[in-house]
Design a protein around this nucleic acid. Structure first.
Lengths: 229, 229
DNA sequence: ATAATAGTGTCTGTCAGACACTATATC
DNA sequence: GATATAGTGTCTGACAGACACTATTAT
């Protein structure tokens, strides 16, 4: 009656680089799917908790150490892995652009891939990782609306414009800078002013902020896409 | 390096009975945790997909056949099951009150338990099922706000009052009947009038509705609890 | 000066909550 | 009639989008 399986973890790691939402993909160095793109991840060890396994695999394959992980879902359809029954628990992570990353064990290469230019390659992604990535993106887009998620993508201290660029990158649509400014500075405990300012290439210096303690944005920011009734 | 585990599925099955949100719990008939309350569920078979396993286990233990399942999350901490490493994928289901249910295999008893009166028993629930239930409830309360979930709890055709009772049961707070009526009848494709009416014990007959095609409520219904800034 | 970015003030439309009011049933 | 439930109309306050306007920098 009971049946044995192997447990894996896979990570959808997102960042914003140069105004574009990017996902971290490895090029597989071992069978199966050698040379194909895949999400970073690997097998869970005995007596290892799932988030621990996810963090360990990410460090091993990419050298990145993420603080916060969010469980995305589990993928366990029979046949999804040619090596046998493998159930994969997918995790989602967001971080400020750490620059290029170096490939570690089991990976021939690791790189940030802009989501916008990924459609063509999606069919060749290993396992069912294209579906996992799609679920992760939708989760991220949705969480941006009602949580302070955007602040997880930028280094502190940040400007309101930095935050706005995250929204525009993740949603792929322009946001009115003036209304956005009013909204995020007005939301309680969303961001805290440091009192400092930062001068850019041009224009008036922007106030600097740190992440606040709020866990929800009320009322939520709305994507134009959804507002269209 | 890779390590073998057993995969289980557990279900948080919710309904509204007599104005109260209720969860389906079994009384375990076998070790471990004999005689303790637990979520219905069991082990996944070889070559069986996860949602299939969840539906099969629910039918075996309770005779209930649910159409729609939603993956809630996976629970895989080492030691959560005394039998060894067991990863449980939890599913969430909503259905109109089907009346009392009969116990099937591996279960000494099956019954609907009002959430409101469950706090005391929660500590004695088997495995980590109390935590799974807590996550399922929060998911249900949250989905009620921005999806047509409430309609999944009532038999068609239903009245606006039927729907409102679902909100009040799940959220545990009163909702203004007049504003609620305006909101749900105004939301596009949320519910479709059948043209029929239904007379209750007293009062003006209510129009009857069927579920519409909308997948989102825009703008969302808001819980007073969250609105309090 | 000009251009660019940061930030404020204000108008308008929509929708929430509140609640008076009408409509139609049972007792 | 009284009472209960269904449903409409309307007022007010909050907030969205739109956008004119001011503030402060680089060139």
């Amino acid at each position: 009656m009971k049946h044995s399986a192997t447990i894996a973890v896979d990570l959808v790691v997102l960042t914003v680089r140069g105004g574009e939402l990017c996902v971290l993909l490895v090029e597989r160095g071992i069978e199966p799917y050698v040379g194909r793109y895949a999400l970073p991840g690997g097998f869970v060890l005995a007596d290892e908790d799932l988030p621990e396994a996810a963090k360990r695999e990410l460090i091993e394959e990419t050298g990145l150490d993420v603080a916060h992980l969010e469980q995305l879902g589990s993928y366990g359809k029979p046949g999804r892995d040619p090596r046998g029954r493998v159930l994969s628990v997918a995790y989602l992570a967001f971080l400020p652009d750490p620059g290029p990353v170096a490939a570690g064990s089991d990976a021939a290469a690791v790189a940030w891939h802009p989501i916008a230019g990924l459609e063509a390659d999606l069919a060749s992604v290993a396992f069912d990782h294209a579906a996992i990535l799609k679920d992760g993106l939708e989760r991220a887009r949705s969480k941006l609306e009602y949580t302070p998620l955007a602040a997880a993508f930028v280094e502190e201290p940040f400007t309101v414009s930095d935050l706005r660029e995250v929204y525009e990158a993740v949603w792929g649509e322009a946001v009115d800078p003036r209304n956005f400014h009013r909204k995020v500075t007005g939301a309680r405990d969303l961001i805290n002013a440091t009192g400092e300012t930062r001068t850019g290439d041009r224009g008036r210096p922007a106030n600097l902020y740190e992440r606040g303690s709020a866990e929800l944005i009320l009322p939520p920011m709305m994507r134009a896409e959804l507002r269209v009734n």
